[in-house]
Design a protein around this nucleic acid. Structure first.
Length: 510
RNA sequence: GGUCCCGUCGUCUAGUGGUUAGGACAUCAGGUUUUCAUCCUGACAACAGGGGUUCGAUUCCCCUCGGGAUCACCA
C-alpha cells in the first residue's frame, strides 16, 4: 500500500472538545497503525471567528493526549506552511486554473440581492440554488468580490470507509463560494487544495460534512484531483442524546479532564471506544493495542453519547494498572502540558517555551493535598501504594490521603449519619473505642505490624461481641475521619503506634 | 420544508437468515467472618412499529415513526 497520510484540520475558533478529539484520535490511529504520517493543519480562514490562543490550545490538547503529529504549524514539514492563512497564494493559483477552465466566476450580486433570491425561493417553497441565478456574462474577477465555483450538477455515488456506499442527487450541488471577498478561501475550497498538495490519503472528519460531499466530488473533478479515501464519523451526542456535542452547549475542554485527574490512557481508551471496538469483549485497550487493532471499517455508524460514569470507571481501571512510580510521577503535576511534552516523540521548541513560561501556582501544581504535598517522596509513595486501588481520579487523592499526613479533625456527624453506627448510643461508641484503645495500647512497638494487628482486632471482635461493620467502622472513623480509607491494619501500620493510639484517645473525648 | 445519515438493554456496544440476543458502565442484592472503597457472584434490562421475502427474520427489502446532520462570503 502506498504511504498513508492522515490529518487533523481544526479551525482555531475555541475549545477543542471530545468530538474533535475523537476525529483526531482516529486519524492518528490510522496513520500510526499503518506506518504513515499524521499532519496537523490549522484552518484559520475565518478571521471573524478566530479566537486568540485557540491554536495553542489545540496543540496543547493533542500533546496532552500523546497524539503526536509529524508535520504541523509549529514544527513545519515538507508541505509547510500548515496554517491556511499563510497559504493564500496556493488557493489563488488553483482558483486561476478554474477561471481559465471556465469553472469559476466572479459573483456579481450583492448580499442583499442574494437574500432576495433566497426569500423568493422560500416563498415558492422551493429549495434555493444559486446556480439558478448564474449570471450570463459575469465580470472579470478582480479579487474584490467573491469567486464562485461553476458546478456541474449531477448525481453522485461514492464510498465512505465508515458509512459505506452513499449517494445524493444533483440538487445537492450548487455554485458555492471558493474565495471570499476578503481574499480568504472557504473551507470547501481550501481543504481540497491542501489535502491534495499535502498528499493526504484519508480524509477523516465529522458527519457535518457529509451533505457537502457532492459539491466536493464535483470540485475534485473540476480541479483534476484524484479523490482520497473518505471516512465520515458520526457525531458524539451530549448527555441527553438529542444533539451533537458542540462548543455552545458547554462541552468540556479536553484539558479539563486532565486537570480533574483523568489519565491520558483512560481518555484515549474511552474516546476510542465511543464508536469503535475490535469485535471481542475487551474493554480496556492500551494506546499500543489501539494502534495495532484500530480500523475504520469497525467504526459504527450511529452517534454515541458521552457517558461520564463509564469514563470514571475506566479511569479507575487505568490508575490501578499503572506501576507505582509511574502513578507517582503523575500525581506530582497538574501541568499536563509539561508531562505531555516529556512523553511526546518529537521535541518542540515552541512547546518547551510555553511550558517554561507557564505560571506556577503551588496550590494547583500537583494532586496532593495541603499536608500531603509537604511530605517526603518516600512517605508519599507509601501512602499512594495503599490508596492506589481506591482512586477513581487523581483528584481523589487528598480525600484519601490527607489523614496520613496530619491529624484530622474529628467529625462526629460522619458517625451519626452512618446507617449502622448512627444507631449506637454515644456511650456505647465511647465504650467500644475505649476498649479498643486499651487493648491496642498493650501491643509493643516491635509487634506493631499488620499480622499482629489483624489478629488483635479479631480478638477484639469476639471480646466485645460486636460486628465488624460496627467495631471496625468506628475505629476507622476515629483514625481517619474520612469517607473511605485503606484496610484498618494497613492504615494503623502506616500511621504508627503512637499516632494511632493518640487518635483513639482523642476520639474518647467526644 | 428539500437533501442525506442513523435506529440492539437507561448508557457504550457485540452479533447472526435458526443464538437462552453476548459483554461493559450504571442500578439493585449477596459475598470476600476487617469497615468504607476496590474486588467477586448474581439480578434487573434491548432488537422502534407495520408490512413483505423466507420453512424461519433482530439480521434482507419497503413503508411509517423516532433521532441527527446539512441547506452561509462558518468550518
Amino acid at each position: 500500500m502506498s504511504n498513508i497520510r492522515t490529518r487533523f484540520a481544526p479551525s482555531p475558533t475555541g475549545l477543542i472538545h471530545v468530538g474533535g478529539i475523537r476525529t483526531a484520535l482516529y486519524a492518528w490511529l490510522v496513520a500510526r497503525g499503518q506506518g504513515g504520517q499524521f499532519v496537523l493543519r490549522l484552518e484559520d480562514t475565518d478571521q471573524k471567528r478566530e479566537v486568540a490562543g485557540a491554536d495553542q490550545h489545540i496543540i496543547d490538547s493533542l500533546r496532552a493526549l500523546g497524539l503526536d503529529y509529524d508535520e504541523g504549524p509549529d514544527i513545519g514539514g515538507s508541505f509547510a506552511p500548515y496554517r491556511q492563512s499563510e497559504r493564500l497564494d496556493h488557493y489563488r493559483a488553483w482558483a486561476e486554473k478554474l477561471i481559465a477552465a471556465g469553472r469559476a466566476y466572479a459573483d456579481p450580486y450583492s448580499p442583499e440581492e442574494i437574500e432576495q433570491f433566497r426569500d423568493a425561493a422560500k416563498r415558492d417553497k422551493k429549495p434555493f440554488l444559486y446556480r439558478n441565478h448564474r449570471p450570463e456574462d459575469p465580470p472579470v474577477w478582480d479579487g474584490q468580490t467573491a469567486l464562485r465555483f461553476k458546478s456541474d450538477a449531477k448525481d453522485y455515488h461514492w464510498h465512505d470507509a465508515v458509512m459505506g456506499d452513499l449517494s445524493a442527487g444533483a440538487e445537492a450541488i450548487d455554485d458555492f463560494i471558493l474565495i471570499k471577498s476578503d481574499g480568504f478561501p472557504t473551507y470547501n475550497f481550501a481543504h481540497i487544495v491542501d489535502d491534495a498538495e499535502m498528499q493526504i490519503t484519508h480524509v477523516i472528519r465529522g458527519q457535518e460534512f457529509i451533505a457537502s460531499m457532492p459539491n466536493y466530488l464535483n470540485l475534485y473533478e473540476a480541479l483534476g484531483i484524484e479523490r482520497p479515501i473518505f471516512a465520515t464519523l458520526p457525531h458524539i451526542l451530549n448527555e441527553q442524546g438529542n444533539k451533537k456535542l458542540s462548543k455552545r452547549d458547554g462541552a468540556r475542554d479536553i484539558l479539563d479532564y486532565f486537570r480533574a485527574g483523568f489519565l491520558r490512557e483512560a481518555l484515549v481508551n474511552f474516546i476510542a471506544s465511543m464508536g469503535w471496538n475490535d469485535g471481542t469483549e475487551q474493554e480496556i485497550f492500551s494506546v499500543d493495542e489501539l494502534i495495532a487493532k484500530f480500523s475504520l471499517d469497525r467504526v459504527g455508524r450511529s452517534g454515541a453519547r458521552f457517558d461520564e460514569k463509564r469514563l470514571l470507571w475506566m479511569n479507575g481501571q487505568w490508575i490501578k494498572r499503572l506501576d507505582l512510580d509511574d502513578l507517582y510521577a503523575r500525581t506530582l503535576s497538574k501541568n499536563v502540558i509539561a508531562s505531555a511534552a516529556k512523553q511526546s516523540r518529537k521535541s518542540n521548541d515552541e512547546l518547551d517555551r510555553h511550558v517554561a513560561n507557564a505560571p506556577r501556582d503551588d496550590k494547583m501544581s500537583n494532586f496532593w493535598g495541603e499536608n500531603g504535598r509537604k511530605a517526603s517522596e518516600a512517605e508519599q509513595k507509601k501512602v499512594l501504594a495503599i490508596v492506589q486501588d481506591r482512586l477513581k481520579t487523581l483528584a481523589d487523592l487528598p480525600a484519601l490521603s490527607e489523614y496520613f499526613f496530619a491529624r484530622p479533625t474529628p467529625d462526629w456527624s460522619m458517625i451519626d449519619e452512618h446507617k449502622q453506627l448512627g444507631k449506637l448510643g454515644r456511650d456505647e461508641q465511647i465504650d467500644l473505642l475505649g476498649i479498643a484503645s486499651s487493648v491496642l495500647a498493650k501491643i509493643d512497638e516491635a509487634d506493631w505490624n499488620e499480622e499482629n494487628l489483624q489478629s488483635e482486632l479479631n480478638n477484639l471482635l469476639s471480646a466485645t461481641n460486636s460486628k465488624p461493620p460496627i467495631l471496625f467502622g468506628l475505629i476507622r472513623f476515629a483514625l481517619t475521619w474520612a469517607p473511605f480509607s485503606p484496610g484498618l491494619s494497613e492504615t494503623m501500620v502506616l500511621l504508627g503506634r503512637e499516632e494511632t493510639l493518640a487518635r483513639l484517645l482523642l476520639s474518647l473525648e467526644r
